[in-house]
Amino acid sequence: MKKLLSLSFVLLLVLSVVLAGCGSEGETGEGSESPGKIKLIAAHNQTSPDNPYQVGLLKFKEVVESKSGGNIEVEVHAGTIGTEESELVEKLKLGAADVVLVSPGFMTQTGVKEVDLFALPYLFDNYEHWEQVVDGEVGEEVASIVNEKSNNDFKIVGYWSAGVRHFYGKNQIETMDDLKGMTIRTQTSGVVSDYWKQTGAIPTSVAWGELYQALQQNVVDSSENSYPYFVQQNHHKTGNGKFITETGHDYTTRFLLVNGNEFDSYTQEQQDIIMEAADASVQAEREALYAQEDEYKEIAITDGAEIKEIDTAPFVELAEPLQEQAAKDMGAEELLQKIKDLK
């Protein structure tokens, strides 16, 4: 009987050790399915599945999951966890999102004022100039500033574009005088707002998801954006969006961000995979955007929109002193000069 009890005790002890080992194997994090497995929430604020943002994040997902052998899962959200960039920035900071797309204007709200340099009207001459800036020394310097001033809450892992922005409204613009007294949906603070005020327009705040209705119901007279974005949302089909003037005032910059503190907690292999996927997403998003600009311009024409090209020289002339003053206020005069030197 004693031998039988001793044997039972030994078997019970062995079984408990085995179970304990099985339980600890997957406990690398709450909800982990296997050792080292992580899940990333990637989000942007556009709701159209055809948007270049979606193309870019799907490429990010594809590369991450392929290179990690499925040990890093990516869940992509197209406007489903926030259609306002301020929401996405807050979610990234709090850990409710891991990869997000934001514009310079919203990054300034976090206290990193230098990034607003990229929002200056008529800063870039063309896409070639823009790429030289963001993919070179200036882009690296801005990324370091963002990381340092945010205490590593935000880390730029890629520069995307939201296209070249044009004016669209209830009337064509022949000269700058045509903007006087016209309400325009755009940023209502910062360098962008200051510029439109100088033209005589009245910057007005309207949420992106509410802009179609605002244009349709005369809440605002006009707006400004790139073809893929406003045509996908049918703004050109409204009375206050039908008349497009190709002002080309902004070759836009968008930041692909991760939480730097969270990123630093990953293994070196995981970090390398994420950076490789970020690089792939940059190329995929840009290629989609460049192709869609021509495509959606043609769609707008087919749908009855009226498009006009104008001499932008007076608009550029108005922007130049504002650029200098804004750069001075930001403490980014050297950065501005480096951008101009690349023209």
Rank of each mutant, 00 (worst) to 15 (best):
G29M: 01
E85R: 00
G105Y: 02
D153N: 10
N151R: 11
S16V: 08
V219Y: 15
E148Y: 08
P49W: 13
G105S: 11
D311P: 00
A305D: 05
E141D: 12
L94G: 03
Y168M: 13
V219N: 12
V192P: 06
T188Y: 13
V142N: 02
G56Y: 01
S86G: 11
K59R: 04
V18D: 10
L12M: 14
T175A: 05
E269G: 06
G158I: 03
D178G: 14
V63E: 04
V138R: 02
D329I: 08
A207C: 07
L336F: 01
S193L: 12
N147Y: 12
A277I: 09
L256W: 06
G331K: 10
M182E: 07
S6W: 13
D311Q: 02
K343D: 02
P203L: 07
E33Y: 00
V258C: 07
A332K: 05
V76Q: 08
N147L: 14
G31M: 04
R254Q: 05
A43F: 03
Y296D: 06
Q213W: 07
F154L: 04
G181C: 07
L342N: 02
P49S: 08
F167Q: 08
F9T: 06
K113G: 03
V282Q: 13
F255P: 01
Q187H: 13
Q268F: 09
V191F: 09
G111I: 10
A278V: 05
V164P: 00
K93R: 10
D125T: 15
A42L: 03
H77K: 15
V64M: 14
L13D: 04
T47G: 03
F124H: 01
I244F: 11
V76F: 05
N225R: 10
Y159D: 06
V55I: 14
F60S: 12
P314I: 00
W196N: 07
T110M: 14
V138Y: 08
N151C: 09
I145L: 15
G163I: 06
I299M: 04
T267C: 15
